[in-house]
Amino acid sequence: MSSTPAGSPRPSPRTVTPTVETVLAFVNTRADGSGREELFADGDAFAAWLAAHEEFGVGREVVATDADAAVARELRDALVTVLLAHSGDEESLGEPLSRAERHLRRVGALYPLAPVVTAGGVELTSPQAGVERVFGAVLAAVTTFAQSGDWGRVKACRNPPCHFGFLDRTRNGAGLYCSTGCGSQVSMRRHRQRQRRDGGAPSEA
């Protein structure tokens, strides 16, 4: 994870930092209705994904089991629930969010982080190796960015079933969708629902 050099300027909330890239790379591995495939389907798929993402620091020869892939899916899905809450998605609030936060606390206890202090700043890293290092790297990225005060800008698209993770770069932090296309789909869906509701009863001659 990137360090925080002493006296360095605070990045703009609209800057996609390496920590944000790490979080988004991990959460944007879900299958959805638009053609994206599940990248953590099993151990082999998870290992192939890790081999293509050197930023997690486990090397190209990492071995991942089906159980590892299941842990990755559970961590990812808990993070997606939190990111949906950042977008104000009502279905993710309440018990789903509480359940996700409890899971993230358990994961944090299983994969603790270690601070590396230098004259230039402090960096959170995972002291573990192999697949466990990946989960620690994700938690380190979340922690580092959350401490900037802009954690709420990392969101998941409110257009179901997209839920693609993105950094909200709007000036007021009010973005709800990962793209204008998803925003248009939601608007069109609501328009059709209003038409069905308003014109559902046939008029009598």
Rank of each mutant, 00 (worst) to 15 (best):
E74T: 15
A25S: 15
A67Y: 09
T29W: 01
G33K: 09
A70R: 04
A41T: 09
G33H: 09
W49E: 07
D44P: 04
A78K: 02
F40T: 08
H53P: 08
A45I: 04
N28I: 10
R60T: 15
F26W: 10
E54I: 00
V23C: 12
A67N: 07
A52M: 10
A67E: 15
V23Q: 09
E37G: 03
A70I: 08
A78E: 06
D68H: 11
S34N: 14
A52S: 15
E55G: 06
T65P: 02
D44S: 14
G57M: 00
A45M: 12
A64K: 01
A69F: 06
E55W: 05
A47V: 11
V62S: 09
D42R: 03
V58S: 10
L24G: 09
D32E: 08
G57S: 03
A31S: 10
A70D: 04
V71C: 06
F46V: 05
G43T: 14
A64H: 13
A78P: 05
F40P: 00
V23K: 06
A67M: 11
T65A: 11
H53F: 14
T22A: 14
D68M: 02
F56V: 01
A72L: 01
D42K: 08
P18T: 09
F26V: 05
E61C: 04
D42A: 06
A48I: 13
G43V: 12
E37F: 04
L24T: 05
E37D: 08
V63K: 15
T22S: 12
A78I: 05
D42E: 13
V58M: 11
G43Q: 08
V62T: 14
L75G: 00
G43H: 02
L24N: 05
R36D: 15
A41Y: 01
E54S: 14
P18L: 05
V27E: 02
S34H: 15
E54H: 15
E61S: 13
T19V: 12
V20K: 00
D32V: 08
A69V: 07
A31C: 06
R73V: 15
A31G: 06
A31W: 04
D66T: 11
G35I: 14
R36P: 04
N28L: 12
V23H: 01
H53S: 13
F40R: 03
A48G: 13
R36W: 14
P18R: 10
E21Q: 11
G33S: 08
T65N: 02
A67K: 03
L24I: 13
T65Y: 03
R60H: 09
N28P: 02
L50N: 10
L50H: 02
R30G: 05
V71D: 12
R76Q: 03
V23N: 01
L75T: 05
F26E: 02
T29I: 10
E21I: 06
F56N: 00
V58D: 03
V58E: 01
A48E: 15
V20D: 01
A47K: 09
A69T: 02
T22E: 04
A70K: 02
R60S: 10
V71R: 15
V27H: 00
D44H: 11
F26G: 03
N28G: 07
R73E: 04
